[in-house]
Design a protein around this nucleic acid. Structure first.
Lengths: 335, 335
DNA sequence: CTGTTAGCGCTTTCAA
DNA sequence: TTGAAAGCGCTAACAG
């Protein structure tokens, strides 16, 4: 490995002078600078960011902890985070927790050791420990997509409750009464909030929902499939389904199909999270979509403003608007 | 920041002893170890991986350079790489080049500075420079998905030529003669190889294809859309399309739809790369699918075997099998 | 079993 | 305008 010392020797100067050239700092005679530049080029010298970071106490590296990197919603976030970060000279380490709190904790420890400058976190659960850990060590953190109840922490997300309210109200207005909601993990705010929104829509319409219609599960296609099958076996099966994310929706659809039910003729299906147009042949699903790209961008910028010390305001919550798109998967109930 | 020295002081021992406890190495009296452990816990000490890496010359970090992190094919690879790496105690830095050689080069420089232990690279172009750069600095690298002609380098990929051959032959056997192939970037081996496979299928059938039918473009939905529109405006438009990746296929499909053409009744459409079942309502497309998960896993394991020094064989090329799945997007040409 | 010394590659003083 | 010394946090090698 070539070091700054090798370059110095090669150029007949001290290491310090090389450092000055590298960082464009202090005074270096033009002629000396050229000699150093030449030496750098000749030796193919690459400065060691580790050593530099050890001094600066700055790695220019962020961490993005996601629960499911195969979900396009999160992929889009990942992409926009990467873009926003690299624009400002930061790299991003991606971590995938699979919705597991244990994995999240494990990653956090490694990332702390690696001295990341900041963390973007989609928390696996509403557990406050991860956030506390980071805050104790004054590593800036921005929570994405989900809420951590009883925690003062920067957050960028959408209004899950409102979105679910809109979807449910829309179905109620179409005349549905037996509406099922397919939640994800019970320990995650988006699940809880979306179910709350569902309940509010019923309450405001002065209608009752059956306890049977409200289900938790996972944010996976398999879970959507399983729960839908259960619901179809009820004495009074739903006439409409609200899936609390895109994967659940796809699993639900498969179960409906297998049961010989036509969407939207026999049942309606609406969902959270759009699937990017680049991925589907026929956008079909009525959805409340989240601006994933914007979420990632704003979260990153907020994080960077924190760790640059330029932003010392109290923790803030940025709520981005949802967009409801009515497509062909929803219609009035069968008479 | 708490350092090993603080812990030492707190426990009334030397830094070295703390280091020994941390790394479970050498002899430490049980009672001393306990005292140190207690101090670590009390101070909430987190070892600084930067300092450690500076000594060890090992960061336990890999880089994965992708061309498009929003493409599920690459997302799946990303996920399996992350899984395989974290299993062996490595973190992964993801980089997205957007198929740009300039971005690739830029990332490579940063990663070199950050002293990553190894690189997994989906090269943006067939340019040999990136690989040479890494090899000169003896940073192990495994090329994924694409071939770098005239380069001795570990590679994990599928046989693009064969896949395209199979798709084309299948269409020829159905009776199609006017078959278009929608390539991606011309500077990427997968584009070139898939077109070669197409040509071979024609050659073996003793048939001629029209030069018009062979198009390069980008690996994007937009490009698939544009090129398909062009092709439809030809005097003798294609009766079948081979898309060289999933995004191109979706763009092509949209163009066909807009032109009022029914798939497969009016035209057939087949493609490379499956879209994961978790993402689509009705798998519809006849495809040659690549085992993305396996590609990521094998590439990571190969890379790790290289940087552990356990594998000093000459560079190898691992070719994984493709799977052709015939669905509803293809059929015989309209009489 | 434990501590001291030196050094990884770089940069911040401070001095020349 | 340049250099020498010291130190970031950690550990290998050697003493004790």
């Amino acid at each position: 490995m070539t070091t700054i010392g090798d370059v110095a020797k090669h150029a007949g100067v001290s290491a310090m002078t090389v450092s000055r050239v590298l960082n464009n700092y202090g005074y270096v005679k033009e002629e000396t600078r050229e000699r150093v530049d030449k030496a750098i080029a000749e030796l193919g010298f690459v400065p060691n960011a580790l050593a530099r970071s050890l001094r600066f106490k700055r790695t220019n590296t962020l961490a993005l902890i996601l629960t499911d990197i195969t979900n396009p919603f999160f992929t889009t976030i990942a992409r926009s985070v990467e873009d926003a970060a690299s624009e400002k000279g930061f790299n991003v380490m991606f971590c995938n927790t699979d919705e597991s709190q244990a994995k999240e904790t494990e990653y956090l420890n490694v990332l702390l050791q690696k001295q990341v400058d900041g963390v973007l976190l989609v928390p696996a659960t509403s557990n406050t420990e991860s956030i506390s850990l980071l805050q104790e060590r004054s590593v800036p953190v921005v929570v994405i997509d989900r809420r951590i109840p009883d925690m003062q922490v920067d957050t960028v997300r959408c209004d899950s409750e409102l979105g679910a309210y809109q979807l449910t109200k829309y179905l109620l207005d179409l005349g549905h009464r037996q509406i099922a909601i397919l939640g994800g993990t019970e320990t995650v705010s988006t699940s809880v909030d979306r179910i709350t929104g569902y309940q509010r829509a019923f309450a405001e319409a002065n209608l009752e929902y059956s306890q049977d219609m409200v289900r938790y599960g996972q944010f996976t296609s398999q879970s959507g499939y399983d729960v839908t099958q259960e619901l179809l076996n009820l004495e009074r099966p739903p006439t409409a389904f609200v899936a609390t994310n895109n994967f659940i929706a796809i699993g639900a659809y498969r179960a409906l199909q297998e049961a010989g039910l036509q969407v939207p003729h026999d049942v309606s299906l609406v969902a959270f999270d759009d699937i990017p147009a680049a991925l589907v042949f026929n956008p079909f699903l009525t959805v409340v979509g989240q601006p994933a790209h914007e979420i990632g961008r704003q979260a990153t910028n907020l994080l960077l403003s924190r760790l640059n010390g330029g932003n010392t305001n109290p923790p803030q919550e940025i709520i981005l608007p949802l967009t409801m798109t009515i497509r062909q998967s929803s219609g009035p109930p069968k008479p």
